[in-house]
Amino acid sequence: CHSECLGNCSQPDDPTKCVACRNFYLDGRCVETCPPPYYHFQDWRCVNFSFCQDLHHKCKNSRRQGCHQYVIHNNKCIPECPSGYTMNSSNLLCTPCLGPCPKVCHLLEGEKTIDSVTSAQELRGCTVINGSLIINIRGGNNLAAELEANLGLIEEISGYLKIRRSYALVSLSFFRKLRLIRGETLEIGNYSFYALDNQNLRQLWDWSKHNLTITQGKLFFHYNPKLCLSEIHKMEEVSGTKGRQERNDIALKTNGDQASCENELLKFSYIRTSFDKILLRWEPYWPPDFRDLLGFMLFYKEAPYQNVTEFDGQDACGSNSWTVVDIDPPLRSNDPKSQNHPGWLMRGLKPWTQYAIFVKTLVTFSDERRTYGAKSDIIYVQTDATNPSVPLDPISVSNSSSQIILKWKPPSDPNGNITHYLVFWERQAEDSELFELDYCLKGLKLPSRTWSPPFESEDSQKHNQSEYEDSAGECCSCPKTDSQILKELEESSFRKTFEDYLHNVVFVPRKT
């Protein structure tokens, strides 16, 4: 048989008469490798580009789960590009990614509803959504962080984005990388972005840091009482949809009607710091009717980097990364020049730590249904340095008659930039024990000054392991946590139920 035959053949030295091919099969003959313009397919066939392209389009058009959109890589027609490569849609070739590779997620039936953290986790790592997304989240724990972890990498949506009755959302900033909504599939009414009845939605994105392009379709905003109209108009300008909307697409009466839409800028007039305090004062603000001013709200939190936005980490279910302080308005003076500047002394802060701070007014709604208010920009203030805590785990070892090696770990709280350490030492008198000992005694162990690591005695271990207080009263049991108490109650309830079950099964009433 021919060298490319495997198993047997019907005619000697003829690659077209093989029972099976050793390498690849091409047009009725066995070959060692697939010549151009053919590609290896499933490690035994040679196919042309049209064959591989037909497989790709067949799966793409069917949208069946589990099928493969075949691509070409290293002269092979394979189910998908290997790690580190992405497909070129024009020629199906796998090309190296520039940075992290995109991950295209194809949605069944063309859309997916995100109504819980669990459903959001199914899209973790996706960068391109081939379909439409509907966000409908009523509640949950730590929602802002969970949504950002699972949806934060999405850069492109081919269909539309719909935010509907998501009472738990305060902001859409968890879509931190969303840059493009194509609108290839539109919501009824030709809408590519749809926001309806979101009672706590206050911000779409921080438009000073976020760009969003909507290729096709219109915007729809109705019944978002805490979303200011200025935020919607800003989205029109940034996304390129200005002029597409009709009169009733953006409701003037049901958007922002319960919001404090600040239209003035508060400026800080005085800032002073110490290692654990920050004193702030800002310019006074009074609405047209000074009785509408209820006070100020001061927001602050630790910020290692200057990239904080107002609604980071917030949701309507209680999660809030900001510390909020309510401040009463100052006494009002008739003389504008003698107006008191409101302020606040922030206490209990960490030394040498940068804080993000902003302040906003708290006002009631005027009778004319106009909203007044003022808010400052987010500023960054760093507390002063102070003395560091003591170095940890000092170790001293003498390696000769004239040297001592000293080692330690950095302090747990540096409280500033540590530039150097101060080492103090003092000579001590020799131990009298060394002169009084009889060095001729056998088995004498000389006193040693070398360091030995501390260890816990058996008594201390027994005390720590004991669940009861000892007789001397030195140790006591740790208080039980809520989960331990709940577990004990469940076990007790189970024992009672099981005992009742045994009584009912074992003891049967005697027939009379």
Rank of each mutant, 00 (worst) to 15 (best):
K103A: 13
K103Y: 04
K103T: 15
V104K: 02
C105W: 01
C105R: 00
H106P: 10
H106Q: 13
L108F: 13
E109G: 05
G110C: 03
G110D: 05
G110R: 10
T113S: 13
I114V: 07
S116F: 03
T118S: 04
T118D: 04
T118W: 12
A120H: 05
E122V: 05
L123S: 01
G125A: 13
C126S: 01
C126I: 02
V128N: 01
N136L: 14
N136R: 06
R138V: 04
G140D: 13
G140Y: 09
N142L: 08
E146W: 10
E148W: 15
N150D: 07
E156L: 10
I157D: 00
S158C: 14
G159K: 02
G159R: 04
Y160C: 13
L161H: 00
K162S: 12
R164V: 08
S171N: 12
S171E: 08
S171K: 07
F175H: 02
R176V: 12
K177P: 02
L178K: 00
L180H: 09
L180N: 11
L180E: 14
G183H: 03
N190L: 06
N190V: 06
S192F: 01
F193E: 00
Y194G: 07
Y194D: 12
A195Y: 00
A195P: 00
D197W: 15
Q199D: 12
N200Q: 14
L201P: 00
R202Y: 14
L204Q: 03
L204H: 01
W205A: 08
D206I: 05
D206K: 13
W207T: 06
W207A: 08
W207V: 11
S208W: 13
K209E: 08
H210K: 15
N211A: 13
I214K: 01
I214V: 12
T215C: 09
T215P: 15
Q216V: 11
Q216P: 05
Q216F: 13
G217K: 03
L219W: 11
L219P: 09
H222S: 11
H222V: 04
H222L: 11
N224K: 00
N224A: 02
K226H: 14
K226E: 04
L227T: 08
S230Y: 03
E231C: 10
H233P: 04
H233C: 04
E236A: 15
E237C: 11
E237M: 14
V238T: 05
S239C: 10
S239L: 12
T241R: 09
K242R: 14
K242M: 08
R244I: 10
E246R: 08
E246W: 03
D249K: 04
L252V: 10
T254Y: 07
T254R: 06
D257R: 13
Q258L: 08
Q258Y: 09
A259F: 11
A259Q: 09
C261M: 02
C261N: 02
C261L: 02
E262C: 11
N263Y: 05
N263T: 10
N263M: 06
E264H: 11
L265M: 11
L265A: 09
L266T: 06
K267Q: 10
K267I: 14
Y270S: 07
K277L: 11
L280C: 15
L280M: 12
L280H: 00
R281H: 04
R281P: 00
E283M: 09
E283G: 05
P284I: 05
Y285E: 02
W286M: 06
P287F: 04
P287C: 06
P287S: 05
P288L: 12
D289G: 01
R291K: 01
L293W: 05
L294D: 11
G295S: 11
G295R: 01
G295P: 07
L298C: 09
Y300R: 12
K301Y: 03
E302Q: 15
Y305T: 11
Y305W: 13
Q306A: 03
E310W: 10
F311N: 09
D312L: 11
Q314Y: 07
C317S: 02
G318Q: 06
G318R: 02
S321Y: 00
W322L: 05
T323E: 15
V325P: 00
V325W: 10
I327T: 07
D328M: 15
P329V: 07
L331I: 08
L331A: 06
L331V: 11
R332N: 11
N334M: 07
S338Y: 08
Q339G: 08
H341V: 07
P342F: 10
P342I: 15
P342D: 07
G343D: 15
L345V: 15
M346D: 00
M346P: 01
R347S: 13
G348H: 09
K350R: 15
W352V: 03
A356T: 05
A356S: 08
F358Q: 09
F358R: 12
V359S: 05
F365V: 08
D367L: 14
R370K: 12
R370A: 12
T371L: 10
Y372D: 03
G373R: 04
G373F: 06
A374R: 02
A374S: 04
S376R: 00
D377G: 12
I379N: 04
I379C: 13
Q382I: 03
Q382F: 15
T383I: 00
D384F: 02
A385T: 14
V390G: 07
D393N: 04
D393W: 09
I395P: 01
S398L: 02
S400E: 15
S400P: 08
S400A: 15
S401R: 15
Q403P: 00
I405A: 05
W408K: 00
W408I: 15
K409A: 03
K409E: 04
P410F: 13
